[in-house]
Design a protein around this nucleic acid. Structure first.
Lengths: 280, 280
DNA sequence: GTGCAACCTGTAGTTTTACTACGTTTTCTG
DNA sequence: CAGAAAACGTAGTAAAACTACAGGTTGCAC
């Protein structure tokens, strides 16, 4: 959370940036401060504080305080450590795993505010589900599709620009389009989302909090992504995306009830029929 | 905080004890609940909730929520409970995420005993790296390949039986074959590993502890996999596999040094050249 | 059993707080 | 230098937390 604020400071309007800086300078006071107190302390007005929260992808000031409280209780030393060139091998391995664990714990904390219920409703009623994503997110889309079609619901996926756009262009209001993007700034994904939405389909996105893609869809799963992707490809945030879909998959299976269960058992039986003893 | 509530339950009046028990049963919902919502959920009135907070020595309900938020963000000993058909949606989501977190923490604890150093040495010296996996593990193989080829080292992957066997059959002693399987009992993966090993290649596997595949390779990453895969496809163990490869990827990049870094930057530049602002 | 007292507990308010609607000012953009 | 878009604050609203108070219950002495 504090990392999210720090990262957004540069792209924030002046008054909102003052709010962010004051919070970072006085995180513990913020916990007990009212909107009014925070606004005057930061030399601005109450709506600006609320707007600041919204800009971070949060529903409001209450949520900001909860996130901050959670943030402050964690041992900060173990967090936010990026791998450096001087690290030993076991240091590097430990850091990578620590970051992934921290990202998943944060997701777990956020899970109550994520729109799982709305997404399950939409997916359960869908005529067809379309998963789209490019690059590394394309791998996620493929993986997720592999998971979802076993529920017995018609599903497709696409990982390249032209196919993604064409799939979005033939969506019907009964369809659900799921867009996956780490940055949430992939032009193809955003175009697909708005195209699908224009055609009446329900659009879902799993992406970065406050990103254009999240803004462009009906149901947005806003995950925090405060990892350094300047050198390496996203790791912890990709695990986060996969975990979101794992949870969504299970929740959807529960909602579908018996029909999903038989479909799952049948797809598993198809595997064992080829002498593979368990699901890969 | 939760321990405090639990300890005070016996010495509490009936109505207040109901409040405490409801909070312990639904800690995360409590964070977003108002006094009124909590009161009705616990079958009592608003002042009772406030009195409950005071009894714990807190100034009010706000403070209770802050303490609870801090409490919940600390790594708790997550229970390894499997999802059941009677679970509510948020229960199911929480359980799925808890299991993944627990699996990653276990991996982190085991990481010192895993053969990262040997694997990095082999991968750094390889003429070519071959990633193989079937089904859902095929998706992992593809994802991992997508990560590794960016380091500038020749890499291929295969996800279907015939191609896997053929790739293994043309291995040289300078090559590294990486087999991925959740169960470690996939006949194709085992065959590929022994074929590759027979041809002198270095074989690596990421699979279940004590499985045939682990036994069949030179360098085995034995991950624990105690999740129930009778209905759903492996989730937490797949995240574990991906995390292993994330760590391996970073460790290899460090070992390769400058050449890997320039390769990563070049592959990233190729993305930005197509107006994608960040790595997907 | 009766009367008294201490203590739960809910009803009905009050005050504080978060959030919204809207209009003004500033800052980009063509 | 228009016109549009974004930023920002004023004033208002709905809801939240919290309080005052009174009815009711329980326990205990006599």
């Amino acid at each position: 959370m504090q990392a999210d604020i720090d990262a957004s400071l540069t792209s924030l309007p002046a008054a909102e940036a003052r709010v962010g800086r004051w919070i970072l300078a006085h995180p513990r006071e913020t916990l007990r401060a009212s909107v009014r107190a925070l606004a005057t302390a930061a030399g601005t007005s109450e709506p600006t504080v609320i707007r600041f929260c919204r800009r971070l992808g949060l529903p409001g000031y209450r949520e900001l305080k909860l996130r901050l409280a959670a943030d402050l209780s964690r041992p900060t030393s173990a967090m936010h450590r990026d791998v450096e060139a001087t690290d030993t091998l076991s240091d590097a391995v430990g850091k990578v795993l620590d970051q992934s664990i921290a990202a998943l714990i944060e997701l777990r904390d956020d899970s109550a505010t994520l729109p799982f219920a709305a997404a399950v409703d939409a997916l359960a009623a869908a005529r067809q589900v379309v998963f789209v994503g490019e690059g590394a997110s394309g791998r996620v889309a493929e993986d997720v599709w592999h998971k979802f079609f076993r529920l017995g619901r018609p599903s497709v996926y696409a990982t390249d620009g032209p196919t993604i756009r064409q799939l979005a262009a033939v969506c019907t209001p009964a369809d659900v389009l799921v867009a996956i993007s780490h940055s949430g700034e992939s032009t193809t994904s955003i175009a697909a989302a708005s195209l699908g939405r224009a055609r009446g389909a329900t659009t879902i996105a799993v992406s970065k909090r406050g990103s254009p893609l999240i803004e462009a869809v009906d149901i947005g799963f806003a995950c925090s992504a405060d990892e350094d992707t300047s050198v390496f490809t996203p790791m912890s945030s990709r695990l986060t995306q996969l975990a979101v879909f794992d949870a969504l998959h299970v929740a959807l299976a529960l909602a579908l009830g018996e029909s999903a269960e038989t479909a799952l058992r049948q797809s598993k039986a198809a595997l064992t029929g080829s002498r593979l003893p368990s699901v890969e």
